[in-house]
Amino acid sequence: MISKLSYVGLFLALTLVHICAHLKPTIEANASIKTINLQLTRKLNLYVGYEYHHTMLWQAVMNTALLLFGFWRCQREVDNAKIRYRLPDPNNNVRISAAAEVKLDWFRRRGKLPTSWQLFPMRHFAWFGAPWTLTLLFHEFCNYAQLNLVMRHFCTSLPEVLLLYVRLQMLYLQSLLTNIIGSYLLQFHGAVVTLTASHANYINYESNLFVGDE
């Protein structure tokens, strides 16, 4: 179904997605009031960032490893079922589950050749994928609700909060990419300095709640 190299790519991608779901939003407010030529200028800036802990990495690695281990076991089940379909002799050494045997009998009676996804044991895979999926959805919901609860006080709509939450996750990925490739850019003059200077670990959000001139 998928190659060994694809497992490595899936492991990295799913781990990063899980870490992004664990990131805790942080918000700092900076209010400034200035008087210029007898005019009062008020301004409120929000610095929206994220909080990262190393425990998030270990949780993501464990859940992703369990997910891919379950997928690997299901893939072996599919491969054994294909062999059993071609060699239906019950005395061979290939062993499959009772559910897979029922599927094969159904396809044999109809003279159809089953595909890999038709033989894939989704219920068995769901047990391995449940921890990854449930923790992902739980943290995504809690972190978004926390961010929305605060940002709604600053006249921010739901689509804006959702976009801001996605930008926070992209900000983490950008920071991670900067740290990974930073060592390889040391040979270029000022490349690392320029890359680091152009990256900040927060998003500057100007609120319209406290902005005005009098």
Rank of each mutant, 00 (worst) to 15 (best):
Val102Ser: 15
Val161Glu: 05
Asn208Ile: 02
Ala191Trp: 07
Ser116Arg: 13
Leu147Ile: 05
Tyr202Val: 00
Tyr7Lys: 14
Gln146Tyr: 01
Met1Thr: 14
Met56Val: 04
Phe125Ala: 15
Ala31Gln: 10
Ala98Gly: 04
Thr41His: 14
Arg86Asp: 14
Lys34Trp: 08
Phe11Asn: 15
Trp127Glu: 08
Trp127Ala: 08
Leu185Glu: 09
Leu5His: 12
Tyr50Ile: 10
Trp58Val: 12
Cys142Tyr: 04
Leu185Phe: 11
Gly111Tyr: 04
Asn37Glu: 13
Ala31Asn: 08
Arg109Phe: 01
Pro88Gly: 11
Ile96Lys: 00
Val48Met: 13
Leu113Phe: 03
Pro114Val: 05
Arg73Val: 13
Leu195Lys: 05
His54Cys: 04
Arg152Val: 12
Asn208Leu: 05
Ile33His: 14
Leu137Asn: 10
Ala60Met: 03
Cys74Val: 09
Thr15Ile: 06
Lys82Val: 03
Val61Glu: 06
Val166Arg: 09
Tyr144Cys: 02
Asn201Lys: 13
Trp132Pro: 00
Leu164Gly: 03
Val48Tyr: 07
Gln187Phe: 11
Lys82Phe: 04
Asn91Ile: 06
Leu158Ala: 12
Val166Glu: 09
Asp89Pro: 03
Met170Arg: 07
Lys43Ala: 11
Phe107Arg: 04
Ser116Met: 12
Leu163Met: 04
Tyr172Thr: 00
Ser97Arg: 10
Ala21Asn: 11
Leu162Tyr: 12
Ile181Pro: 01
Met1Trp: 13
Asn91Gly: 06
Phe107Glu: 05
Tyr202Arg: 02
Tyr205Thr: 08
Phe141His: 08
Phe141Gln: 07
Ile83Thr: 15
Tyr7Gly: 08
His199Arg: 09
Gln59Cys: 10
Asn45Ser: 13
Gly212Asn: 12
His153Thr: 06
